[in-house]
Design a protein around this nucleic acid. Structure first.
Lengths: 190, 190
DNA sequence: GCACTGGGAGAACGTTCGTTCTCACCGATG
DNA sequence: CATCGGTGAGAACGAACGTTCTCCCAGTGC
């Protein structure tokens, strides 16, 4: 046995993450993932019985990673207002990664949303998770209508995510933070 | 001659628009476009010498159509503030089309952005056009920093575009309009 | 009537892809 | 030592794709 199951799985997911995210899901063949992961095709298929299963695992891991990175930034801030603004600092950090290419869920949804209900569902769940996190932050900050504030903040975040991807600049995060400050000033009780 | 060049071109572009937008660019073969357009493969290739050329024409037409629909909504409003808010009414109308699937440029960028510089460029140009239109509206409304206000409004719009696509509901346009009102109140001189 | 041009229908070609199969080989077990 | 299960490397398969080619016919100019 060349490599144990756990590390093989990790190597495959690492390769899938890098390739799927950079080039899109459809543009990457299973053979490219085999080459990048160093795992044999046979093993690859016994770890993930189809490309669809691998795509799902790729999105699952992205979701978990993204959530934990967000939580890390948010938890570093103390008062409720700063915790909300930390979301945009997190985005700014994310946008500066050299391989930043937008949101994997939005990209995958654009590619497969109509043909793969599973991908559409995962994208919806991912965004719903973000929505719940923001709603919680808005509630903690004492917003009179937390869901509404959360929706407003989500729009700024999603807008920044796609604009940053297309423009190639992390600046949209700064602009989104500015707008968030204005919204918080208009919404939160002083 | 079965059909003249102009109508053949229109039929092909109609088919390309529908199929590319619904299923994504890579998932649609040239043969599917031939079948949907009723134009022979030979003619298709003499109208558009490659799939890349057809994709480019598809995006060009989307850009023109989108801009004219936006202008139509904006021009129906009289005072500068309402003209800005008309952008979000336009989005709400757009989101309610039964085949709404998000922004074709964002979707195409996600699919081909890294591999096709031309698609990346077209997406950037499309968004830049939107940015200039919003900057003009912000200027007319007397914003002290029109570019900044335009950036904030863009973030709300783009966010609504992707959220509406993923959630399948047109409501994000309403939420975006609410947030825009708050931003305008905080930004524009009374 | 007859050569000729151009288009329609679709077969054909070469490539790529997802997935499976072959086969030689290694380590453990009796 | 002989055997057996599982593995790696990669060939093989069937489908789909972008693109080109073949064949046939309709309409045109002489």
């Amino acid at each position: 046995m060349a490599i144990d199951t756990a590390t093989a799985q990790r190597q495959v997911l690492d390769a899938a993450d890098e390739l799927f995210y950079e080039r899109g899901v459809q543009a990457v063949g299973m053979d490219a993932i085999r080459a990048a992961s160093g795992v044999s095709l046979k093993r690859l298929y016994q770890l993930f019985p189809s490309k669809d299963a691998l795509i799902e695992a790729y999105l699952d891991r992205r979701d978990a990673l993204w959530k934990s990175m967000l939580a890390e930034h948010v938890d570093a801030a103390k008062n409720p207002r700063d915790r909300i603004l930390a979301v945009f600092d997190f985005l700014h950090d994310w946008f500066q990664q050299r391989d930043y290419r937008g949101c994997a869920f939005i990209n995958s949804f654009g590619e497969l949303g109509t043909v793969s209900p599973r991908v559409a569902e995962l994208a919806l769940q991912h965004k719903e998770g973000f929505r719940q996190a923001l709603t919680q932050l808005a509630k903690s900050a004492g917003a009179p209508d937390p869901e509404r504030l959360a929706d407003h903040l989500i729009l700024l975040s999603e807008g920044a995510i796609t604009r940053s991807a297309i423009s190639g600049s992390p600046d949209p995060a700064i602009r989104a933070r500015e707008a968030a400050v204005l919204l918080l000033d208009a919404t939160l009780p002083s």
